[in-house]
Amino acid sequence: EAQFKLRASVDTSLSHARTQSVADYLKKVQERSGGRIETELFHSGQLYRDRDVVKALRQGSVEMAAPGNWVLTGLVPDADVFQLPIFFGQLASVAYGAADGKIGQLVDTQFQQKLQVKILGRWLPLGYQNCYATSKPIKSFDDWAGMKIRNSGGAGQSLRAKFFGAIPNLTAWPDVPLALSQGTFDGLCSTDESLASAKLWEAGVKYGFEDHEFIGFYVPMISDRFYRQLPADLQKIVVDTWQENIETYRKNMETAQEEAHRTLEKNGVQFFSPGLEALSKIRQKMMPTQDDVAKELRLSAPLMSQIKAESGNLSQ
């Protein structure tokens, strides 16, 4: 018989790999708890946009969420860590390593304290953020210069656009298809899956440039007050279920991006890949700006010294 109700809110649609991961997690938690935890999933922003969901968690209006780290920077600036130049153009494994290691822990600690949540475990990657264009193909970083490139608002993205001589443009996601088809901007930074879900080729996207600017992560969390009222065995189920499945979920997220990539290609989007070497060169050029970027992003001193301590491994 149900003793606890676990409602989860995500703002991606039912078919999105994150929604699917959370749905699978909820199903398993309910099963393993023998129905003592009754779970319910609200997707597509029915209850909350991710931007707003952490406050609802704090206030006890909902029990679980997995917001992207990019919407958490207003409360925990260190959530923006992957905007640092050192992560530009890196392989996913590098970002995963940082997220799963001490850097991720430093950020998690702040999430737990400030948002009054329990972080379930390792984060769920959304995938590479790339650049896409409508009018002219981007084949190298020089092509960025002078283009109007839309981003979703964080300071890191706008600094990066400026670094390449592009003109950063901030447009809310709901306005993107219309703005694209009207030529309000020449390109945008996003992921394959986001583009495919909005079918943005119909809004004029023709080219993709796989510059792997950073990797966004969804942070799985449940509200502290919910977690604390659970008996120890259920607490263990809630945490273990995530830990045991996160590898599968990560794979699923990657597969979804690959599928989206193929969908985009099938619909005529042409991709260019600068290659690891070129990315690494660009990263070296960006590195001198790292401290300024950190300052702009309000990253904390402990986080930055951790980054410096690991920089040997990261910049391999």
Binding site: R51, T73, G74, L75, P77, K114, G153, G154, A155, E296
Partner: peptide
């Protein structure tokens, strides 16, 4: 409560405007 909570948390908008 919402406003003071936001003040205590030093909540900023997640854009570069902060």
């Amino acid at each position: 409560e919402v406003a003071t909570g936001s003040f205590d948390l030093d909540e900023r908008s997640s854009t570069g405007l902060e």
